[in-house]
Every structure is written in C-alpha cells, then in structure tokens.
Amino acid sequence: MNKETIIQGNPIQPEKQKKTPRDKFERERIRVRRIRKRKKIRDKIIMGFAVLLMGIIAIIILTPTILTITNSFMSSTEIMANYGSIIENATSSNKTYISKQVNLKIIPDMISFSQYSTVLLKSPEYLIKFWNSVIMVVPITVFQICVALGASYFFARFDGKLRSLAFFVYIILMLMPYQVTLVPNYLVSEWLHIINTRWSIILPGIFAPFSVFILTKFMKRMPSAMIEAAKLDGAGEFTIFARVCVPQCRSTIYSVAILVFIDYWNMVEQPLILLNDADMHPLSVFLSKINTGDVGLAFAVAVIYMIPTLLMFFYSEDYLIEGISYSSGIKG
C-alpha cells in the first residue's frame, strides 16, 4: 500500500495467504482469551462500583447505629452542646442552647458512662418501660404464632367458600394500615373495658392476620403426600398438625416470630392511644418522644432498646433466611 492508493481510494487488495488448521485454532484461542480478559476487567470494574455503592449505602445505613452507640458514651452536656439546636427548634421551650448547628460527632470528647448509670441505676423509669415492652411483646409474639398456626392449618387444609371468604377478609385486614382499624379497635377495647390496660394491646396483637397469611402460604406448599402418609398411619388432624406440619414450619415460625417481634417492639401508635397511663408505655414511646424527653439519655436508651432485637435476629438468622428463601421459592 502506498500513499496514493489510499488517497485515491482504491481498495486495498490484501495478499491472499493460505490458512492452516493449526493457525485457526490458535487464533480462536487468542480471541477467546482476549474476550475473557476483557470480561474479567469489566466484571472487576462493575464489582468495584457495586462494592463501593454498597459500601456507601452500608455506611449510610450503619451510621445512625454507630452514632447511637458512640454517642451513648458522651455526657449529657456534650450531647446538649452538639444536638441542642434540634431541641430548641423542635420544642416550644424557651431554652436557648449554645450550639446553633447540629454537630454529628462520632468520637466523644470524653468517654462517660453517665448516661448508662443514669438509665440503669438512677432512673428506673426507663427500665420499667423496657419491661413494659417485654411484657407486651413476648405474649403477643408467642400467642400470635400459636393462633396463626391453627388458623393457617385450617386455611391450608380445608377448602370451601367460607374458607375463601375468611381468608379474603384476612388479606384485606392485613393490607389495611393500622390507622384505618384504629377507631374500631378503640371502640371495641372500650366496650370490653380494657382501655388503659395492657390487654387492649395484647389481644388485638394476638389475633393479627399477618402471621396467618405467611404461615398459610407455607403450609399450602407442604406436600400433601406427607399428610396422606400420616393419615394412613392413623394420625388424627391434631396429630398431623402438631407432629407433621408444625415441625416442617419451624423456619417459617422463627422468621414470623422475628418479624412480629420487631413489629411490636417498635409499636408507638397503639400505646399512645390505648394507654393513658404513661407508666405503662413501652420504651418505643419514650424514644418517639425524644425531643421532649431527656435527650441526654436518648442514646443510651436506644442502645438498650436495640439489644433484644439484635439478639433475636442473631439467634434466628438462619431460620429467617431460610424462611424468606422458602417463601420466595428459591431452592437451595
């Protein structure tokens, strides 16, 4: 090729060479190697971006938790100095705080256990609220699962229009937000004379539809051959329920328990509306009123607040994952 050829635009006529089979293979191999190498680099880049993004998201998600834990070792004065302006703006109090801007501090100026000593030693109110939460949530969780197991077994095993209608109602109720059923809930509680008692929260919690829905879905997927085999062995309905179905649902039960526990551990509306006496409020209510309460103790209380949830999760982590994957149909 010469310059004139290119300028004139004459097509270049390559020299025809003879191709051997061995060269084709080599070339193919080189080509594949190149493709693989490019793919690897791309994957790494994508992976890197993904990791970075996830990391950022993880940091964003974990920052409040880390902040809570580290700020729980600050003294009340330091907290007021860093976050006082929030309280000044949020409340109608006439107090004026030194700091006019919020200062997010991870590392305390001086590590202090004053918050924990106040919460755990000097002010039993918070511990009372903790136990209030435990007293309300544990029975709800336990009895809701008990009720849900029976209901879901019925829904899974028996057919009929009545079953369909009831299940449909359950679904509707599950879909409704709490605010919709709040007024009827209050009226029924008042009619039963359980307003301002813990039963006004526990009883509706026990008969919540969410657990029924999840367990019904799982029980429907159980192979009917297992049940028939149990029947052939002479098992009655209760024996089938107790000896065959419930053990199979163990993972789902754990996952439902965790979800229910977390849901009711964080409840705020029900205690505020149904419990007039502030001494019966759970810890979640105190944390929801953080602006008007003792802000200097909020972080320590939050740390104590999250411990049972964490313990619950770590205890049931495997079951939770198993339950969620089984529910979604993922095998393996």
Binding site: L120, L121, K122, S123, P124, L127, F130, V134
Partner: peptide, 15 residues
Amino acid sequence: LAIMLVLTLFSNTIM
C-alpha cells in the same frame, strides 16, 4: 435479661 432485672431493682433503691 437477668442484668436488666437486677438493675431495675437496684435503680429504684438508688434513685
């Protein structure tokens, strides 16, 4: 839970 229970009892006294 045991620690929380004990502290509940003692915190009332200390308070």
